[in-house]
Amino acid sequence: MPEMKNCTCSCAKENDEQKYKKLAELMKQYKNSEGSLIQVLHIAQAIFGCLPLELQRYIAQGMGKPLSEVSGVVTFYSFFATRPRGKHVIRVCLGTACYVRGGKKIITRLEEILGVGVGETTKDGLFTFEVARCIGACGLAPVIMIDDMVYKQVKPEKLENILAQYN
């Protein structure tokens, strides 16, 4: 699987074989629990970083479901990625509150700094740049989220300093 090699998630320390073994064991636990496909996909993405077609096929087999169903679910939800993501994921909130307080200016500035557009990953694999629907921190708008960390009242000129903390 050539595309897996570029996966830069934090679990890159484990080799593929270990990862598959881990996933297979987890799938055994979940297989009999009704409606757990989405939870399994969350886990798989945490282990592998993303969910390419090969992996979807493996999950389909493990869960005893057709590949079409697994693929259908993966492509439906925005949290699931089929291509490798950057080491850090930047999500700019464009919910109405953030929009009113200047979320769009943050997008423009980030495009300049990162040199990529929304939905893309920087060449060095450090950042994936996404837009989020409301993340529920409207009192602090505009906000961005990098991985699990929320940055409040972000101004375009603050962005470079924020990004400099990540490597």
């Binding site: 989405i38 939870q39 996909l41 169903e69 925005s78 949290f79 699931f80």
Partner: peptide
């Protein structure tokens, strides 16, 4: 049950589909 980033899942019939592990 944790969602996976789909706005529509707040609507109750799609929410149930999502709990069932479907689109």
């Amino acid at each position: 049950r944790i969602g996976a980033g789909a706005f529509v899942c707040g609507e109750e019939t799609s929410l149930m589909a999502s709990i069932e592990g479907r689109r």
